[in-house]
Design a protein around this nucleic acid. Structure first.
Length: 586
RNA sequence: GGGCGUGUGGAGCAGUCUGGAGUGCUCGUCACCCUGUCAAGGUGAAGGUCGGGGGUUCAAGUCCCCUCACGCCCGCCA
């Protein structure tokens, strides 16, 4: 149908008779001459139609409107110097049309098909096929495709096999809420959509397929976020006869190769490794953004003899005084500080103390009259503060103080433009706890998953303080976002049973839920481990966008529905009957 | 489940704090003019349940209450 693509025409095509097809991007009607920017996935090119030279082509061009689909034949002409458009890749040439054919007409689109549109997102999602016509959206889709291709190329070269595992699988109560699929053939029973192919990949290791990967869809029925969707893609990989170093090595090699192939950026490996506890201490969370400083500082020692009731009470009860120093933060308005305090309280703090350092050792703070000169000096020294800086202090349990300040650290860095552009700060967060206490469940739960191998000595640690047992797990964090999670798995049934027991899962329950895995472990399971990077998150970071929907062709809205298809929808009674389901009024 | 924000011709906004005629801006749409534009230009026109419901008031886009949709965050995410 076409001989060339719109965006590939250049000066060297001058004189050639070509046929192109695409969408009318712009039309500029000058009466006796019409300019049409015709766009396809490769880009756009200017078409010129003269009324007198080609009346039939002109008649068709006269009918063309935005987003009509058209076929145009003509001769590629070098433009005169005065009419070259340096803003277009094809701007040195234009197509003199001899034939214009309307392939299909278009209604006026609900928003402009242009880069940088600020249309309501729901409108974009509802007309995603139009939104995806925008060059920047197509570029994101292409980038994501390059990521996936890069992964396949790299892992294929490393001897990994791509193996599919079932989408209809078994519900496992641990972890996120499952999406359930009723079984018609076995009435009253349900499949679950996989949260990850975790158990299958471990079975593949038992099977001796010792380097496996796939890029599966995973499903978690939880509330959505900017970086979290109901369904998402992850690179799932697993290796046998490995320890942490092997998995980390392959992952780093993959990241280096992806950033090189997809972005042309050289990132350096090995990535720094930060122990989990250190990350909490310095950054207030387990996904540190290393692109800026503002690390948390313990200022309890400064206020050892404080007369301030709040600080005194917290310190006496074994709590913590933590601070971050905001360089130049003294200029922040009080109204803004109140917003920060509100944000702190949302995350569980009872308040937020602020102290602005001024010239001559003076301070500006609601607490000013309770802070002695010695304390002012010590605080300034501990935080390495200068005049004009702002200290934010949280007095609470260590955990709350860190969470709150970790959150403020990220918010402030973003709002105050402290985050440098174009930096890729990878790190591994290692040695995380094996278990975490769940207030809701009133029991310890796996912080990674129950198949994660504990570090040696865990049983003693468990007896003394269950929270102190560590896991052979590792997260890869990029610019403050968790990109991947992985671990060395348990391959010993006795150890697996002990971990289940620690989680409050007795032998009978373990057998009924995970019996197939325990059974497999009777037959010489190899030591194994793996990692699972999120494809969407890699793509969103590379694309420089802040929402997973921007790198997903057909995403759900944040409320978990699909504005394009209307899913989820009620179903016919007949379908429910077949499945043996009855709806309860909500 | 909770907090915050947004909702005004087809699109993006201003107007809401401090009530006074659907007022304004940019784009799009339609008609006419125009042979070198490229976000074309010129002239003119059409297009509105101000998300929905209720209330206060002589009078509500504006104030109050309820509600819906969307977005961000907390909870949740082995």
């Amino acid at each position: 149908m076409r001989t060339h693509r719109c965006g590939e025409l250049r000066v060297e095509h001058a004189g050639a008779e070509v046929t192109i097809a695409g969408w009318v991007h712009h039309r500029r009607d000058h009466g006796k001459v019409i300019f049409i920017d015709l766009r396809d996935s490769s880009g756009a090119v200017q078409v010129v139609v003269h009324t007198e030279e080609h009346p039939e082509a002109y008649a068709a061009a006269d009918r063309l409107q935005r987003e009509f689909c058209a076929l145009i034949r003509g001769r590629v002409d070098r433009r005169s110097d005065a009419t070259i458009n340096p803003k277009m890749a094809t701007g040195e040439i234009e197509l003199k049309a001899t034939h214009v054919e309307i392939l299909s007409e278009s209604e006026t689109p609900p928003f402009l098909i242009e880069d940088g549109v600020d249309a309501d997102e729901n409108l974009r999602l509802k007309h995603r096929y139009l939104d995806l016509r925008r060059p920047e959206m197509q570029e994101r889709i292409r980038l994501r495709s390059r990521v996936v291709k890069g992964i396949r190329d790299y892992l294929d070269a490393e001897g990994f096999l791509e193996i599919e595992t079932p989408i209809l699988t078994r519900s496992t109560p641990e972890g996120a809420r499952d999406f359930l699929v009723p079984s018609r053939l076995q009435p009253g029973t349900f499949f679950a959509l996989p949260q990850s192919p975790q158990l299958y990949k471990q079975l593949l290791m038992v099977a001796g397929l010792d380097r496996y990967y796939q890029i599966p869809h995973c499903f978690r029925d939880e509330d959505l976020r900017a970086d979290r969707a109901l369904e998402f893609s992850q690179l799932d990989l697993e290796m046998s006869f490995v320890d942490e170093e092997d998995v980390i090595g392959v992952t780093e090699g993959l990241m280096v190769s992806l950033w090189r192939d997809v972005l042309g950026v050289e990132i350096r490996a090995p990535f720094p490794r930060i122990p989990y506890q250190e990350s909490l201490r310095r950054f207030g969370n387990d996904k540190p953004d290393l692109r800026f400083a503002m690390e948390l500082t313990d200022v309890a020692s400064v206020f050892g003899d404080t007369t301030l009731g709040i600080f005194e009470r917290v310190l006496k009860s074994g709590g913590a005084l933590q601070a971050i120093l905001v360089p130049g933060g003294g200029a922040i308005h009080h109204a803004e500080l109140r917003k920060l305090e509100q944000q702190a309280m949302e995350r569980g703090a009872k308040g937020l103390a602020w102290i602005i350092f001024k010239e001559g050792g003076e301070i500006d703070s609601p607490l000013a009259k309770h802070v002695s000169a010695a304390e002012r000096g010590a605080l300034s020294k501990t935080l390495d503060a200068s005049a004009g800086d702002l200290a934010l202090i949280v007095a609470d349990t260590a955990s709350v103080a860190r969470t709150v300040l970790g959150g403020l650290r990220n918010t402030l860095a973003r709002d105050r433009g402290l985050i440098p552009e174009g930096e890729w700060r990878f790190c591994w967060v290692v040695d995380p706890p094996l278990f975490e206490w769940s207030d809701e469940e009133q029991r310890y739960m796996s912080s990674h998953h129950p198949f994660t191998q504990p570090q040696p000595g865990w049983e003693e640690a468990l007896a003394a303080d269950p929270g102190s047992a560590k896991a052979r797990a590792y997260d890869i964090v990029l610019n403050g976002m968790e990109l991947a999670s992985g671990s060395i798995r348990i391959h010993d049934r006795v150890m697996q049973q002990k971990v289940f027991t620690a989680l409050g899962i007795d032998e009978a329950q373990a057998q009924s839920r995970f019996g197939f895995l325990l059974d497999a472990f009777r037959y010489g399971p190899p030591p194994h481990g793996g990692v699972a990077p999120g494809i969407d998150r890699i793509a969103l970071q590379m694309a420089g966008v802040d929402n997973i929907r921007e790198v997903t062709a057909f995403p759900k809205a944040a409320s978990g529905n699909d504005p394009l298809t209307g899913a989820p929808t009620p179903v016919d009674q007949a379908q429910l009957d077949e499945l043996g389901l009855r709806l309860r009024p909500v």
